[in-house]
Each structure stands twice: as C-alpha cells, then as structure tokens.
Design a protein around this nucleic acid. Sequence first.
RNA 1: CCAGUCGGCCGGGCGGCCGCGGGCGCAAGCUGGAAACGGCGCGUUCGAGGAAAGUCCGGGCUCCAUGCGGAAACGGCGGCGGGUAACGCCCGCCGAGAGUAAUCUCAGGGAUAGCGCCACAGAGAAUAGUCUGCCCUCCUUCGCCAAGGCUUCGGAGGGUGAGGGUGAAACGGUGGGGUAAGAGCCCACCGCGCCGACCGUAAGGAAGGCGGCACGGCAAGCCCCGCCGGGAGCAAGACCGAAUAGGGAUGCUUGGGGCCUUGAGCUCCAGCCCGCCGCAGGGGCGCAUCCGGGUAGGUCGCGAGAACCGCUCAGCAAUGGGCGGUCCAGAGGAAUGGUCGCCCAUCCUGAAAAGGUGGACAAAACCCGGCUUACAGGCCGACUGGCAUU
Length: 134
Amino acid sequence: MPAPQPPIQRLKKRAQFLYVRAGARTARGAVLVEARKRPEGGPAIGAGFTASKKIGNAVLRNRARRRLKEAARQLLPEHGLPGADYVLVARRSTPDAPWPALLDDLKSALIRLRADLEAGPRAARSPKRSSESD
RNA sequence: CCAGUCGGCCGGGCGGCCGCGGGCGCAAGCUGGAAACGGCGCGUUCGAGGAAAGUCCGGGCUCCAUGCGGAAACGGCGGCGGGUAACGCCCGCCGAGAGUAAUCUCAGGGAUAGCGCCACAGAGAAUAGUCUGCCCUCCUUCGCCAAGGCUUCGGAGGGUGAGGGUGAAACGGUGGGGUAAGAGCCCACCGCGCCGACCGUAAGGAAGGCGGCACGGCAAGCCCCGCCGGGAGCAAGACCGAAUAGGGAUGCUUGGGGCCUUGAGCUCCAGCCCGCCGCAGGGGCGCAUCCGGGUAGGUCGCGAGAACCGCUCAGCAAUGGGCGGUCCAGAGGAAUGGUCGCCCAUCCUGAAAAGGUGGACAAAACCCGGCUUACAGGCCGACUGGCAUU
C-alpha cells in the first residue's frame, strides 16, 4: 500500500445523523447513501448505518446493517471523500441482494457523491431533493 | 408392524480468507505525555435464544411516600394438600365431563344473605299453568230402545296436571296398584334430600338408616365470603462535569449629575458600540479570580448467581439438602459479521448415477422465576389400543 488509507470513524450520535441527512443523497439499487462534508474537515471518513422498520423485523434489520458495514469497509477508504460523513440507509432489498450487486451499487453511489461533494456544497443540494426531505 | 397419548431434548456441522466488540497480557516498534498512563499494534480468550419475542403475572434492585396497626374504596385470585423468594406458576390428589384405553378438559367458593335476569317459541319460565285433551254434573240437541237407560252436536260450572304440543329448561323417572279421570294418592326400583359407622392431614369418599319429594338455571349481572396487593421504574438511581448564558463572593478599574436602602444599586445627560453616511427610533456598555446549581458529555449502576455441569441422599413428584467441578456476552444509534468450499437435512428433475435449489421461528440491552405466542426438520423415552408371531 503506497498511500495510507484514511481512517474511518463510526457515527454514533443522533445529531450527526441529522447533520448528514441535510446533505447530498443518492440511491442505487439496494442502497441509499447520504453524504455531507464536515465543517472542521480532517482526514477521517465518517460512516453511519441505518435500517428502519420498513426493512423488516430485527433479524432482517441487523443483517442489512451488517452487510452495509462490510461493504463500506471494503469501498469507503478508496471511494469516500476524506473529511466527509456518509450515512448508508438500507432498503428493502438490502438483506437479500447478491453480494457483488450490492458492492456495485454502493461503489457507483460513492463515486457519484464524491463528484457532487467536490463540486461544492451548494451544487450538492439539487432542487429535487427539497421535495423529499422532511 | 399400524394407529394413538404423554414427556424430554436438539434446533445445521467442519474448515479457509478478510473483519468486529469485551476481558487479560505485552519484549521490541510507531505515537501522545515531564511522568504515571494511554492510543495504534501484537498475542490470547470469550462473544445471542429456546423462545433472546409478546411485555401478561411474580420477585430482586433503585428512588419516592410512610410513626405503628387496622379499615374503607379499588384491583387481583378462588376445590384440597404440598413446592417455592414469590406467583395467577409447578407437582400430587379430589370432584365433574369426554374417550374402548393411555389420557385430556374445567373462572372448580357461595343460588335457604339479598336484588336482578331467564331471549325466541309456548297456555304457562318460578309464591306456576288449561291451548289441545281426559273425566264428572247440569242445560240443550240428534238417534236407538226391551222404558231401566245408551248415544251425537253445542253451552255452562267443576275436577285433573297423566297424553299431545313449545322450549336450553315445564316443578322427579319407569312399572304396578288405585281412580269418574287422574295425581307420590299408595307400592317397588332408580334419582333426590337429611343423618351417617368407618376411611382420609384435607378436598372428599362411604356401608347403612330415615324422608314420600320438598329445594329449576345464571355468580363470566350486581353481590356475599375468604386470601393477597403503597407508587413509579435502569430514560430507576449515584457520581464527575466543558463551552456559552445567567446567579453569588472578593479584588481592581471608573465621564458628569440626581436619589437613597451606600451598592458596579436605581435613574438622567453626554460619549462609544450594534458594517459605512444622513435622519428617526430601539438595544447594549465593566474586567479578573474564585464558589455553587444546572445543560451537552462522561463514569458507575452492569453481572459469581434463587447460576451451570456431574455424582449422591430425601421425596410418587414438583423440589430440596450434601459433595465435587466450572466462570459462562454484556455496549452505545458501533460487536456477535462478510465471503468461499465440503458435508448433513429440505424441495425439484431423474429408472439410477447424478444435477439443481437452498436452511423454521426469530436476535440480548438491569437481572432472575413463570406464562403465552411463533417454529422447517430431527432424536430419545414411557404408555394405550389393534393385528401378527412365540
């Protein structure tokens, strides 16, 4: 490994999740990814995981969250933007999707989001997002 | 062998590779630090369930309330005995009901404490009752006659509670006697009620005797009796505690005037500030150190116990005693995973070989004891009935 991988920090607090929720958002197949630059920056990449009750019972939610965690572990250091926080939201197909397809979806979403984030925080907030945000 | 009843147990296995959380250890390495000690890292070890679920009962623990005891109200429970920390749970037994049987089911205290209700149907539904009937007397009427009576239609009065019919239930049943017809009116048996030797700790069982029948059901309508119960919950609760704002104390500093309760108190004017200029209006004007309360956040609570395993003793059992051994998840929006291979079940195709498919229900969150509900498939034991065989 020539370049050191950026460290990954787990998001824990509700406030952190709410902060990221106001940022960019991209859905790809089995995953929905939210991302936003932290104001203080830094080399670390933040990662949080969410599986709502829409996914199913506790067993299914756990499985979805853990698959997202493993996928993020593999892809986030390479495709994530240092200094930004990501929240991976499980969708109904997350627990059962084929593993390579899940990785593809996440990778595609991360690349798209990275481009948005690097273009600037204003550009990340596309107008269609305002309708679906609460 | 087939059909069935009951109880107990398991609930995929093994192995690569890459990861995660807790505990313990660490020579060297990187890193923070004056150090102590941390972080990264390395090693090692442990890391979801029988229901972890529903949150329906019972407890532990914590805080609140509380002088002690009792009662009312409200809620829960309800055969008897035992087990237990406790229970609405468990075991054994009793009673009633179902089944050929093993076995299963039961809100299983009180209906002579009182009130209330008993739909529909039906004449009548609880101090009974005459719709259709049966019988007697009287009146009327038809017919026969041996002149004594017999008989048909209708009406009135009375007797009856037997037959028909209604109903979940009609105020004992069957048979005989009896009678105008009938009726526990009388008799036998059965049922029922009362007493009851004797057996059982008890619920209860019961030989036998007496009674001529009296006493319908619902307490899951109110109620009565007995027993139990203070409330809220780990977001309990304890400790530490930043920034900012506000409170208090001390010290220092201060444009001018007024007031008094003499203090950075109140108030007026000027000045300055609220991006700049003008006008109008509004707001603000100490600093430093320390103290205490609270918020974010953090630490504890937090797992060696009504624990698990084996042997043994007591007991029909639930369970309890003794001895030996084991340490067995703990966190917050972070862990208990991802992926691959082989095997074992499932299902599909197939004559087979084989190929494909793909793993029930469901995941701790303060901890125990129960209950209830969900569950692919499999294993073990005991017992009952039938068939066959010896």
